[in-house]
Structures are given as C-alpha cells and as structure tokens.
Design a protein around this nucleic acid. Structure first.
Lengths: 253, 253
DNA sequence: GTTTACGCTTAACCTAGGTTAGCAATGGCC
DNA sequence: GGCCATTGCTAACCTAGGTTAAGCGTAAAC
C-alpha cells in the first residue's frame, strides 16, 4: 500500500477518495497492532465475527476445510491487505482465516468501523478491497477450471511477485522473494496434491525457470515463467509491468 | 428480490438499509428496460465500461475466453441480480458478460449511479451484491479445487434452485425449474468437458436423482441430490432451507 | 426437400494428475 | 543422546476425466 499505483485498475475519479480512505483507516487502526503466531486461526467459519483486520506483516489465507480432510486455500493475503472486510456485512464468515507465518495484525471492531463506513472515502476503500479480491477470485476460478498444474503454479508464483511489488514489500524487478508456503500449502491453494506440486517444482527447477526452496522463490527465467503463466493472466495483469516480463506486456493470446 | 430473506446472511442492523437501497435503485433503473437477445455480449473484457445493469428476466454469465479456446463461466446471473456493479470502481472489466437466454435488462450509467452511490443505502445495496458474489466465488473455488465432477454438478443444480427460490422466480419447495444452459455451457461452468457432463447427467438420470433435459431440471430425489452436493455447500447454504433438503439442515460433514 | 447447424449421446482410447508408500533431512524437545 | 513431528522428495501404480470421432434428432435456411 506504499505505492498508489496499487489502485491502478480503478477510475481516476476515485483515486483521491481511495487514498483518503486509506489514511482514515490507518488512523482508526493505529495502536491496535498485535502479533499472531503462525498457524493461528483468526476467524472461524460459522462463528459470529465482529472485527476487520489489516495484515501489517506476514502471510495469511482464507481457507475452507471440510470433514473428510479436503482443504482449499481460497485467497492468500499479503502484508497491507485488509482481512474480513465482509464482517461489515455478514453475521458470520463462510470460511476460516488462518495466519500462515508469524504475523502482525491491526484490528478494528464492527461498531467503530460501521460508523466510519458512513464516510464515503472509508466505504470506497473497503469496497475496493472486496472488488480487488473479486478480481483475483475470477482469475483463480479460471485457473482451477481451465489451467494445467504447471500453468497454475507459474501463475501463482508470478502473481505473488506482482502483488508483493505493488504493495511495496519487495523492490520493482527483483527476481527472488520470501514465500513461506510449504508444498502441502501450495497444493491446497492450487487444487492439486503435494506430490504433484513437488513434481512440477522439480520440472521448473530442472528447466531453469524457477527455484522454490527453503521458503524462498528464485526466478531464474522470468520470460519463460511469464510464458507459462500467460494464459491464466487477466487483461489487467497482462498490461501491468509488475506482473509480467517486459516482452509480454499487453500481448494477446 | 421479492423475498427480503434474500439478505439472510447480513447483519440485522443493515437489513432496512439494504431494502431501502433496493427501492432507490429500482427508482433509478425504472424506465430503462430493454430486451437483449440470447448470445449477446453485454460487456467485453478490456473495454471501457460505464454502466451497471439489473437482469430483469433471463440468464447471463460472467465468462473468460482465451485465445486457445478455453472458456470458463465464472459466475452465472439470475433474474434480479445486479450486473457489473464493479463498473463503479474499475475502468474496464477483466471478463466478458454474456446473456445466455433472451433477457430483459435495465441499466444505469456511471455518472448517475456514482452520484447515487454517495447515498449510504445505495452504497450498501451495491456492496451487498459484490459481497454475495464473493461468497459464491469462494464456494466455486472450493468446488473446482476439491470437488469431483459429480459433486460439482449436483452442487450447481441445487444452488440454482436455491437462488431461484430466494429471488422469487420459482416457488418454495418446487422440484422442477427451467434451466437454459446447454451441456457445453454447463461444462464451461463446471470446468469439465461436455462429454463428461453428459456422462454424469446420464448417471444421475439412471440413478433417479435428477433429470436434466430440454432446458428443464427435474429433481427426482432431492435428498440424494443434497447428499451428493453437501461437501461443497458452505455453512450459509447448509443452514438455509432454500438450498438443502430438510434432512440435511445444518448437518456437519 | 435438401443442406447446414446445433445439441445430445455413446464408445474407445489416453493422460494428467492422484494414491500409496517409503526414505532422508531437519529441528525441536525431553 | 534418542525421539517424534514436519517437510521434502521419489517411485510405482491407478483412475477420473480428457480426447477423438461418430451417429442421431431437430430445426432453421435456402
């Protein structure tokens, strides 16, 4: 959120409002920071929930687990993201929100945010978070429905880099970043098994495309990684420098 | 939208606001109704778009098509739904919106709705549409990532019935409803091939569970259909009478 | 009244990815 | 030190669903 271009998809008319909303929210969240240990569940599906959070550092995810053990990460949250904005609108959430690495979160209770929500700037900033999540969900639905395991993994690694860049966690154009997900967790997000995650990672490593190891992603050939992910990128990502290697900017296909 | 309980997941504090917002939106949309022929594309990905729509009758979908022919229906819209609320926030959409059967839509341009959006009730009603879509997207991500073809198809047929009931298109507890999707279109939504859709439909028909034919769904055994879909239902749907057969209300697992 | 197009159906065959099962390396923890 | 849990890795085997191709019915188009 250090880079205003993180709002790049929006309408110019709204940019100022979103930035003001961001400032106002920061003021409201200020002082409430607290650490959360890796593995903690912040929100449990089906339980009444009256807080909205900002993830200051660390990674989190929205995940759905069912009785027979199937588990799907629905969204991954990175530093700067607002978590559970929907708390403003729903009695309870339909999925768990879990912290994936040691993290720091700020929080705000329903009543306070509800009052603030009558401020147009704050309402816009909240709506923006939901709209942006929906964009990512669209891509993810397409990926799970139509993408191969290779495409999905390439897409995920590229998308994480793009989001970390836009939110200012990593510098523009870096090719290595910390990524705390285990292979099992990657599998739960990608909708494949951890055995197959391992196969694809080895393939990518052998092909000199990307090396994922010890909680770090090292991109060896950004052009090739982009090429493999490209079918799954949406028109926004395809035209945004933070997501794709230069050769592919705005390309069709 | 004839049934206020369509807002069942929300907070009681907001129910009145949502209903007021609905009335205000209706007033704004009034008079703009126009027919749209089946197959028409209402919104094209990547093009500037300045309208928000209400689907008065007929079915529509948000879909992403890529160059190699892969096509995924991301969301299906039913009568009463607002389409493209995100137009308020994004310069262009990342996916097409296509009308699936002869339909009637009302529309409102960006400037008018933007002014109305400063009204809290209207803003809430718009946010609600996006939040509800996100809930469905969560379930769909889980389904595509973890569900078998049988589970997904059962889930879809059950969900469509539930939504049609909540929005007042069909009566409570009916077991047959019109469903204009072809097997190819079902396949595009479910993330499988039309050949496999056909296989599963035959299986369901032979097992006396549900008969899908000639643009109509006839549920022969609601209990069994619910059982097959159950793993994919979210906690909201599991506890809502419109979605599940009585025996399963609120069941875990 | 033939042609074209579309949707449904089925069969035969194939492959991406799942399943099961080990083994090795690491790192608390007592 | 030994113990246990977690993560990564790999091999052997299996299956859900994909692919290809064909036939059938209906209906609009000429």
């Amino acid at each position: 959120m250090t880079d205003p271009s993180c709002f790049a998809l929006h309408r110019p008319e709204l940019e100022d409002s979103l930035l003001r909303g961001e400032q106002k929210l920061r003021a409201l969240l200020n002082g409430s920071a607290r650490p959360v240990a890796a593995g903690q569940t912040l929100i449990r599906a089906g339980e009444r929930h009256d807080y909205v959070y900002r993830l200051v550092s660390g990674w989190a995810c929205r995940t759905r687990v069912i009785a027979d053990g199937r588990d799907q990460f629905i969204l991954v949250f990175l530093p700067g993201d607002l978590l559970a904005v929907k708390s403003l609108f729903v009695k309870w959430h339909t999925d768990d929100v879990k912290v994936l690495s040691d993290a720091v979160v700020q929080q705000i209770d329903f009543d306070t945010l509800h009052k603030a929500h009558s401020d147009v700037d704050v309402a816009n900033r909240c709506m923006w978070q939901v709209v942006e999540e929906e964009r990512r969900l669209h891509s993810w639905v397409f990926s799970l429905g139509q993408g191969s395991a290779e495409e999905r993994l390439a897409f995920l690694l590229l998308e994480l880099r793009g989001r970390l860049t836009l939110s200012g966690v990593i510098e523009r154009n870096v090719v290595a970043y910390e990524m705390p997900l285990t292979q099992v967790q990657l599998a739960d997000h990608l909708g494949i098994t951890s055995v197959h995650v391992n196969r694809v990672l080895r393939l990518f490593r052998d092909a000199g495309i990307v090396d994922v190891r010890d909680g770090e992603v090292v991109i060896l050939n950004l052009r090739e990684l982009t090429r493999r992910a490209y079918p799954l990128l949406d028109v926004y990502e395809r035209s945004t420098p933070e997501y794709v290697s230069p050769e592919f900017r705005g390309m069709q296909g």
